[in-house]
Design a protein around this nucleic acid. Structure first.
Lengths: 155, 155
DNA sequence: TATTGTTATACTCTATAACTATA
DNA sequence: TATAGTTATAGAGTATAACAATA
């Protein structure tokens, strides 16, 4: 257990340092990562980030003030607001992803190729299983029938 | 990379939920975890938590207000303050640790015993290597000659 | 009435800068 | 002077509760 916890602190630390180097917070980075290939509503964002809707309002406010994301009124439902990433936001998140890849490369530098493969497989297993549990428990949503990941990538 | 990042979010999510269930934040939990077997000064705490000393002042203030930790003036150096855990703090962190173990058990539930062993070994490898790098890079401190972990356990 | 989102408010967490006390 | 710690201040992040607009 301690090993696993320490691993996550090491990775999260790397992640946090990179985000900070790009002058954004972890949660802002996650927000941009989610918006890379989605245009969710505020409510959907709250579900993906596991935050209260009011927290997401402030989060999007600050990102919008910095020109990283934009709000669009939904044509279908006047109550809904669609959030999307701006070119500036996309540029920022792609740079952060690249830096993060480099940092992870350092982190797993001592591992043999076989160990890396195993770690990847095991990590995927845990993450997918957890995501499925979470979808059912929290969002009350069926997992995708193809078993595909309906999960918010952190990046 | 995504698998690893998702793994850490899954673990950190579990950790955060358990901390919240015990009505403490993640960083308060880390603080108590560090104090389980240490009586560091404020400066040492700042190093272990990778926070500014002023942040630690507030952190310890709030924990102290809740009766979880206590400050003691150092007899050797009038400038220094030693921080230690109270019985109430110890009880809280032990309960949180137990809950966290249960949650991790769920998280790794789909893994075979062999996979668990491998994950533990790989996670330790990464965490230890990262801690050593961090000691050298950040604290400018030599790693312990016995190769032992001088690292702050997250719990 | 129910749902979506925002606003008001309060708290934790964090850093920078200025300050106090000790060495 | 240098070090250890606190305080003042400011801002991000978060949740709860009240509110407005739409369905």
């Amino acid at each position: 257990m301690d090993a696993l916890a320490q691993l996550t602190f090491a990775v999260q630390g790397a992640l946090g340092r990179i985000a900070a180097a790009h002058d954004v917070s972890m949660v802002q980075t996650r927000l941009l990562g989610i918006l890379r290939d989605r245009h969710p509503t505020m409510k959907e964002l709250a579900g993906l980030l596991e935050l209260d809707k009011s927290s997401v309002s402030g989060l999007v406010d600050r990102a919008q003030d910095r020109g990283l994301v934009q709000r669009t009124a939904s044509a279908l439902d006047g109550r809904r607001v669609q959030v999307s990433i701006t070119p500036a936001g996309r540029q920022l998140i792609e740079q952060a992803r690249a830096a993060f890849e480099d940092e992870i490369e350092v982190l797993v530098g001592d591992l043999s190729p076989a160990q890396r493969t195993r770690l990847c497989g095991i990590a995927s297993l845990i993450a997918v299983a957890d995501a499925k549990r979470r979808c059912i428990d929290i969002l009350d949503v069926e997992p995708a029938p193809d078993g595909g990941s309906a999960v918010a990538l952190p990046f």
